[in-house]
């Protein structure tokens, strides 16, 4: 990397790292340190190919998604997460009929942190990045059917992990179970 490329790289990191970090932390199940590690490794890879990259942000994002799934495959030890606990006061946070919206979001966070990396990655791509199934499939290098089935199973797993979600209506993805229940194949 020459001096100009380094300056260029610094400009890119300064302007986009905060947005990229948000995705990295979500992919890491809310673990800020793991998210920073993930982003750092993705940026190191991008720096190595800086002269040849046309779209740096798209490139870094793709590394984030694939690296996260690969990392899960390597079974890296996982740090303990501190997830906020739902509060007890029903007057503020819910009713006798069930938990309030703020409580449900906290419950959901805890459940998301307990999904496998591949399940969480698919949900982040579908529901945070708002990507259509075809784009998720292309990014992860698998079929649309696999994305659909993983989404379906991930939502079902969330319900298992958090019984408080029972009162919620089914997602669209749960109305359309896929016949393709093959294992997610992710290119290394």
């Amino acid at each position: 990397m020459d001096a100009e490329a380094q300056e260029n790289f610094r400009d890119f990191v300064e302007s986009r790292s905060s947005a990229l970090l948000k995705t990295a932390v979500l992919l890491s199940g809310g673990d800020r340190h793991a998210g920073e590690d993930l982003l750092q490794n993705a940026l190191i890879k991008a720096a190595g190919r800086w002269h040849r990259i046309e779209e740096p942000e798209a490139y870094v994002r793709q590394i984030l998604y694939r690296q996260q799934v690969s990392r899960w495959r390597l079974k890296w030890p996982r740090r303990e997460l501190s997830v906020p606990e739902p509060l007890e006061n029903p007057a503020r946070h819910g009713t006798d009929d069930g938990p309030g919206a703020a409580d449900l979001r906290i419950v959901m966070r805890a459940a998301l942190a307990r999904l496998t990396a591949r399940q969480r990655t698919v949900l982040v791509l579908r529901y945070f990045e708002d990507l259509p199934e075809a784009d998720v499939a292309r990014i992860l290098g698998c079929s649309v059917g696999t994305v659909r089935s993983t989404t379906h199973r991930s939502l079902a797993r969330l319900r298992e992990l958090a019984p408080e979600l029972a009162a919620l209506g089914p997602a669209d993805a749960e109305h359309q179970p896929s016949r393709d229940y093959s294992t997610v194949e992710v290119r290394p």
Binding site: S18, L26, G30, F128, R159, G169, P170, D172, A173
Partner: peptide, 21 residues
């Protein structure tokens, strides 16, 4: 509210809480 809406809200909330690098 559906499960997917809650997933979306939770992810956005968590992302918004991240302080800048």
């Amino acid at each position: 509210m559906n499960v997917d809406e809650l997933v979306r809200d939770s992810l956005r909330e968590q992302a918004a809480e991240q302080p800048a690098l």
